[in-house]
C-alpha cells in the first residue's frame, strides 16, 4: 500500500538571505563585542606607575606620543550613518520597483564604504604608529583591522547587490534588505569601536 502525502509545490525560500544575514550580523556583533571586551580588560588592567618625578600617576596604556587623529575618526563615524541611509534608500527604491535609484543607492553605499576604508588608512598614516611598538599599538591595529575587514565585507555586499540590481533582478528585494541590515550593523559596530577606541581611547 502506498500512501501519498498531500503535495505542495517547491518550498519558498522565505527571506533566507535576511535571516542568514541576521545570523552573520549577530556573529559579527559578538566578534566586535568580544574584542572590545578584551580591549577593556587590557585597558583596565594596564599597570599604573609613578612618573619619574613622582608627581603623576601614569597608566601604561595609550602612549603619550600617540595622538589619535580625531577629525578623521569622527568623519568615519559620521559617514557610517550616511552609508546606512543610502542602503535604506536602496530598500525604499526596491519597494517602489525603481531599479535606477536602487542601483544608484547601492553604488553610493559602496563608495561611502571605500571612503571609510580610505579614512581608516588615513588614520593609520596620520598616527604613524608602528604595529609592533607595544601592547596598545598591536591591539589597536587588531581591532581596527578587524573592523576594516568587516567594512570590506560590506563593500563586497554592496558590490554583489549592485551587480544583481543592474543584472535585472528586480524582484530580489531580499538582497537589498539584507544589505541594509548589514550596513546598520556596521554603523552600530563602528559607533561602539569609535566610542571605546577613539573617544575613550
Amino acid at each position: 500500500m502506498t500512501l501519498a502525502l498531500p503535495s505542495a509545490p517547491a518550498p519558498a525560500p522565505r527571506r533566507q538571505l535576511v535571516v542568514a544575514t541576521a545570523l552573520v550580523v549577530s556573529a559579527a556583533v559578538m566578534l566586535i563585542a568580544g574584542m572590545l571586551g578584551m580591549w577593556m580588560r587590557f585597558r583596565a588592567g594596564a599597570p599604573v606607575r609613578t612618573s619619574a618625578d613622582g608627581l603623576e600617576q601614569i597608566k601604561d596604556w595609550l602612549p603619550a606620543s600617540i595622538k589619535i587623529p580625531e577629525v578623521a575618526a569622527n568623519t568615519m563615524a559620521a559617514t557610517f550613518p550616511f552609508a546606512a541611509l543610502m542602503a535604506q534608500w536602496a530598500v525604499y527604491a526596491s519597494k517602489n520597483r525603481d531599479g535606477q535609484h536602487r542601483s544608484l543607492a547601492l553604488i553610493i553605499t559602496g563608495v561611502l564604504g571605500v571612503a571609510i576604508v580610505n579614512a581608516q588608512l588615513a588614520v593609520y598614516a596620520q598616527m604613524g604608529v608602528g604595529i609592533s611598538d607595544g601592547a596598545y599599538q598591536s591591539m589597536f591595529y587588531a581591532i581596527t583591522g578587524t573592523m576594516l575587514l568587516l567594512v570590506s565585507g560590506g563593500i563586497v555586499f554592496s558590490a554583489v547587490a549592485f551587480f544583481r540590481s543592474v543584472g535585472g533582478r528586480n524582484d530580489d528585494s531580499h538582497v537589498i534588505t539584507a544589505h541594509a541590515l548589514y550596513w546598520y550593523f556596521l554603523t552600530a559596530a563602528f559607533t561602539a569601536v569609535w566610542f571605546f577606541v577613539y573617544v575613550q581611547k
Binding site: 556573529a27 559579527a28 559578538m30 566578534l31 566586535i32 563585542a33 568580544g34 574584542m35 571586551g37 578584551m38 604595529i131 609592533s132 611598538d133 607595544g134 601592547a135 599599538q137 598591536s138 591591539m139 591595529y141 587588531a142 581591532i143 583591522g145 578587524t146
Partner: peptide, 17 residues
C-alpha cells in the same frame, strides 16, 4: 566569534610585538 576576535588579537600581537 568571540574566539575569533581573541585569535585576531593574538595573531597581531604575536606576529608584531
Amino acid at each position: 566569534p568571540v574566539a575569533i576576535g581573541t585569535v585576531a588579537y593574538l595573531y597581531v600581537d604575536h606576529t608584531y610585538s
